[in-house]
Design a protein around this nucleic acid. Sequence first.
DNA 1: CATCGGCATTTTGCAGACAGTAGCCAGCAG
DNA 2: CTGCTGGCTACTGTCTGCAAAATGCCGATG
Lengths: 225, 225
Amino acid sequence: MLSQGLPQGAVPKLERPGPLRDRVYEALLELITTRALQPGQHLVESELAGHLGVSRQPVREALQRLNTEGWVDLRPAQGAFVHEPTEEEADQLLTVRTLLEAEAARLAAADAGSAGIAVLRELCAEGERAVDADDVDAAVAMNARFHAKVMELAGNAVLAELAAQVDRRVRWYYTPVARQRGLTSWIEHRHLIDAIEARDELRASLLMREHTEHTRRSYHEREKS
Amino acid sequence: MLSQGLPQGAVPKLERPGPLRDRVYEALLELITTRALQPGQHLVESELAGHLGVSRQPVREALQRLNTEGWVDLRPAQGAFVHEPTEEEADQLLTVRTLLEAEAARLAAADAGSAGIAVLRELCAEGERAVDADDVDAAVAMNARFHAKVMELAGNAVLAELAAQVDRRVRWYYTPVARQRGLTSWIEHRHLIDAIEARDELRASLLMREHTEHTRRSYHEREKS
DNA sequence: CATCGGCATTTTGCAGACAGTAGCCAGCAG
DNA sequence: CTGCTGGCTACTGTCTGCAAAATGCCGATG
């Protein structure tokens, strides 16, 4: 009897490696976002396959997905290239992000429960601690989790999925500047939570819009220096 | 210097069959949107491959793309199933569409040229003619082109791409009802054009929001009958 | 010296083959 | 009759092999 003392939970589904293509996908995405693969670089299937220790097929499927999500450009009969973000595209992407996040804030304000608000406050506090400790990586991570939680409270799965993709790309483009503005960001978060708690949809939406627009402004200011 | 007098665009690039996976993708998408493949149906790779006269590989890649775009659900080690839209999801999708279209209308109002507005009026007139002729298919097609043109005038490629995906899925969900309301729709289009021409961003945005919301209302009314 | 044509290499696109696994049915013990 | 177990089937996931297309280079030529 092997199946005797399994203490409940903790073993949801017996850790399976999952489809290879997904792991390849995540590996490549990691390499791209960390700039290990630079924009414009030519990605050779067999090269990646050899480097990751798999065949070309999973690599192909991962590249297909990265292509539809806008991370790589797949030119027919020529191969995959890491997407090169232009100024214009970055700006447009930020516009869309502002739109999606503002709507999420509005929806969250419309029907957030006290439990969700408590979580937001907790995340916010944790983020501020990270900033105080000068732990930039942790602060960035907490920022992402905060926005994701707001999105979750909005209760719109479609919106959440789109925002997740857009957000990730925005973060890719704006990482340098995003790492800069740590403190003021969390003050704005606090105000946003207050608006959500007050069920003030309009104010929550405007605050979030302003909040994300600050990123754009920081970027353009940085550009001058 | 050969590349001298090429009057920009207009060169069809010598129609080539294009990658097989793309054609498979479009074929499958057509089959799904036309309900030839019903929601929940199990798609067997070898079956599709045989039916289309190609190998499994292009089919797999097409399914991957359809999966990331939300048309099919790809359950590991079990295969692909046509996505089954739920009431909740359809509603959420419509919310997002409203959001994107309204923003597009605002942006279009912000910087549309007279040339673009002329095209809109032309499309509108053509749509009305189709309605008068009771040509429902043409009217639906013109409606899609009209919205696409507004999106183009917005000048935001990222927004346009997202909206294109969302719009197509919305049309899939709401085809029965969408075919109904033909005439009033074009009156609203006219008002929208007026607002864009007047550079009235707020009014354009609100009109578009109202316009797309009508679809939701029509759907819920239909539900009762 | 510049340019054009052809060749070789590289890389993708596609097809077929093999292994692993989930689901199902029959058979059997209780 | 019911519940379990074993094997079977069909499908997916992955790997390898082959042919076509594009690129870049090199030599030939005006």
